[in-house]
Amino acid sequence: MTVNNILIVGVGGQGTILASRVLAAVIVQAGYEVKVSEIHGMAQRGGSVVTQVRWGERVFSPLVPLGAAGVVLAFEKLEALRWLPWLRPGGQMLVNDQRIDPMPVLTGAAVYPEDALARLSAAGAAVTLCDGYALALRAGNAKAVNMVLLGLLSRHLEFPLSAWESALRRTAPEKYLAVNLAAFALGRD
């Protein structure tokens, strides 16, 4: 009984939940059982957030076990490091090239790990870095970073491009569709 596991991690407000909803729509369309666990409420106010996505023939727990995620899609570099223990040995760590200092770093109580990417590689993760902000700007809206990253994620999954495009059409507001599709395509390239 194989269960596929993905973690989408980032900072509250970065659009991780919408990204996971598109992914989930693609998985449902492919006929799998799927479970998605989200975090709402206080953590969304700029805290560390995670959405866990699991699919297969049969899925019980909505939580991804430690060391079981085939892919971790990280919207921020420190968050990639934080959720590294959930990545399967040799799994894909897809990282948005963005640094958002958490408050303990801003107040000087902690230091931002400048070597986050090196530590990810040293731990055996296959790291792909993506400048989501630049690509989203190129697609026409700085806020489409989540769609760029979704495009990047799509390269590592079995689902056909048409399934992603149809999920984007169904999940996101009509007026952003052109930008979202462009951002997705840039991330996938």
């Binding site: 206080m42 106010r45 700029g46 805290g47 590294l84 958490p102 408050m103 303990p104």
Partner: peptide, 11 residues
């Protein structure tokens, strides 16, 4: 590795 990641409390 992860234990060295500074906490990110909500703000």
């Amino acid at each position: 590795a992860a234990l060295e990641a500074p906490a990110r409390p909500p703000v």
